[in-house]
């Protein structure tokens, strides 16, 4: 049980920061999200999206996904880092992923209409689909891929801080089933969600801390009020718990741990995003203040893959498998 980074892990994260910089405030944040193709290309060239091919572990991939999640710019990294290694090498990123369960639900939280697959998958906006080269469709026991062409995706405006797109139904005809275990892909999808929330939540908390230390009311910083301090202390506990659950799940490879980490992350997101905006005052409602760049990623991820209820329920089935527990 070692919580310190190894020398190699420290070097990896230092190399990441050398490219991304350290938490600089974006010059312009009035757009719903910030894309940075030049940064993305640098990360790609440095091999940060293909760590597994360079011998790095899942834990290291999660560390980098958390690091990229902290950035104010929006980069598709967690899916490439965690799910990419399971896919054929020819698959190109950015990668979008959608979960299609037997109940007819998809990871995009729109009320569960059943019906044709096209109706299920091709009517709902999918995170990162706009600009993606690959769509991963994760069903209960099957994984399929669509190699995307520009005409496959209709861009979609959104209040969330990610690029979203809607799939054109015809694209589904080109979906190819691949020989990838769905349960392992789902485990990694959950790690990706947990890692991305951890990174964004950490950065959002840090930005809010700066605000409450600077902003004064009643003659003192608002961060000096105990009512504010206690909720920020709880927020910090949640973020640190989220980080360590995610890292442990990545290192150990246990599917229940990954479900618990994703569920924890998605659940904490509700209170965390509310509180961080609350403590930022009306400034937190503006687009010139960067908090939304992280919180509206977190809010989008809250419902990913069915949301916290789905991950928590799955963690119970995985931690106490029905056949084993009965009769014990």
């Amino acid at each position: 049980m070692q919580f310190e980074l190894t020398e190699e892990q420290t070097m990896l994260l230092d190399a990441l920061v050398a490219i991304t910089g350290e938490g600089a405030e974006p010059e312009r944040c009035v757009d719903r999200y910030i894309a940075d193709p030049a940064l993305e290309e640098q990360l790609q060239d440095a091999g940060f999206f293909s760590l597994a091919q360079h011998g790095y572990s899942t834990l290291e991939a999660v560390l980098v996904a958390i690091g990229i999640g902290k950035l104010p710019v929006c980069v598709e990294a967690a899916t490439s880092l965690l799910i990419g290694p399971l896919l054929p090498e020819t698959v190109r990123r950015p990668i979008a992923i959608v979960r299609e369960t037997s109940a007819g639900e998809t990871s995009v939280a729109v009320s569960g209409r059943s019906g044709s697959r096209a109706a299920r998958l091709a009517t709902r906006p999918i995170r990162f689909l706009s600009g993606a080269h690959t769509l991963v469709i994760l069903a209960d026991d099957q994984v399929s891929l669509v190699e995307l062409q520009p005409e496959d995706v209709r861009a979609c405006t959104t209040h969330y801080a990610y690029p979203y797109g809607v799939l054109v139904p015809a694209a589904l005809e080109r979906a190819v089933v691949v020989d990838v275990p769905a349960d392992e892909l789902l485990r990694r999808y959950r790690l990706a969600i947990a890692a991305e929330i951890t990174g964004a939540a950490d950065a959002a908390l840090q930005r809010t801390l700066r605000q409450v230390k600077e902003r004064e009311q009643f003659g003192k910083p608002i961060g000096a009020f105990q009512a504010v301090q206690h909720r920020l202390a709880m927020a910090a506990t949640s973020v640190e718990a989220c980080r360590v659950l995610t890292l442990r799940a990545a290192d150990g490879g246990d599917a229940a741990d990954a479900a618990a980490a994703a569920g924890y992350a998605q659940e904490m997101a509700r209170q965390l995003t509310f509180d961080l905006h609350q403590f930022s005052g009306a400034m937190g409602l503006t687009l010139e203040y960067p908090l939304h760049l992280w919180t509206y990623r977190i809010r989008a991820l809250q419902a990913e893959s069915g949301g916290s209820q789905e991950q928590f329920a799955a963690s119970v089935d995985l931690a106490w498998p029905p056949s084993k527990s009965r009769g014990e």
Binding site: T237, A241, V244, A260, G263, Q311, F312, S315, V316, A319
Partner: peptide, 26 residues
Amino acid sequence: IAVKARAGQALAAVEAARMLVYGVVD
């Protein structure tokens, strides 16, 4: 799913506590 979701929430809270305590022990 309502029961399992709450059970899972409790499980995650327990494991979160465990891991944060382990961090302090380390």
